[in-house]
Amino acid sequence: MDHTSDKGTARRVEIIARGERADIEIDGTRIDPSAVRAYSVSHFAGERPEVVLHVADRGDAQWSGLARVAVADVPAPGPAAAVFLDAIDPETLERAALARPDLGSEPYSLTKAMLVQLGEWARGL
């Protein structure tokens, strides 16, 4: 993938992913795998591709070059959770919770089963 900065300098980025590992090279220079804890690649139609390297918190890692940097706050989960919960049918939730094999008989076991069920639905299980 070629990435061109605002100044016109092309950077060749190569990522070879093998299972849980990935080898990353920038302009033919291999990046120490312990210096990167994650990466993401995105490409929207009509725009240049973007590679984001999430740097491990290591004092001995050294980076040089140009980069576009964006700082963002982690979005609050409340609005998304509210939309999810608004879509839940109470009767369907109660039936699913009562049918769970892990439903106990101790106090608050139905509430616990409902919360577990909601968590599974949120994760698409």
Results as ranks from 00 to 15, higher is better:
A97N: 07
A35D: 13
L85V: 13
W121G: 07
R18G: 04
R95W: 01
Y39H: 11
V13R: 00
R18E: 15
G104N: 01
G124Y: 01
A76N: 15
R100W: 02
G28Y: 03
D27G: 13
A17S: 10
M1R: 09
L110Q: 07
I16H: 01
G59N: 07
D6Q: 12
F84W: 09
G19Y: 09
Q117V: 08
P33I: 04
P75K: 14
G124K: 04
P77T: 06
S34R: 13
D2L: 14
A113I: 04
R21M: 07
A87E: 11
L66F: 12
M1N: 06
R37Q: 15
G124A: 01
Y39Q: 07
R58M: 05
L115A: 14
I26G: 05
M114I: 00
R95D: 12
E14K: 03
A61Y: 02
I88D: 05
G104V: 01
S40H: 09
G46A: 10
T29W: 10
L53A: 07
S109C: 07
D23S: 14
G65A: 09
R123E: 04
G119L: 06
S109N: 06
R68V: 12
V51N: 08
S109M: 04
S109R: 01
S34E: 13
P107H: 10
R18F: 02
V74I: 15
I88V: 15
A61H: 06
E20S: 04
A80G: 06
G8H: 03
V71N: 05
A22E: 08
F84P: 10
A38N: 12
R123L: 05
E50M: 12
P107G: 03
A113S: 14
E106P: 00
V116T: 14
P77E: 07
D86M: 08
D6V: 06
G46I: 08
L93H: 07
W121F: 05
P90H: 06
G46E: 02
L125K: 05
A99N: 10
E47M: 10
A67L: 11
V74P: 01
I15C: 00
A17V: 09
A61K: 02
R37H: 09
V74F: 10
G59E: 12
V69N: 11
S42C: 04
A76F: 06
T92C: 04
G46K: 09
V55E: 11
R11C: 06
V74D: 06
A61M: 01
R68M: 11
V52I: 13
D2N: 14
V74R: 13
A122Q: 11
A76D: 15
T9C: 00
R100P: 02
D6F: 03
A10Y: 00
D27R: 10
G8Q: 02
F84K: 07
T92Q: 15
D23N: 08
K112F: 04
P90I: 06
I31T: 01
R68I: 10
K7F: 03
S42F: 02
A122E: 08
D86C: 09
R95N: 11
L93P: 12
D2Q: 13
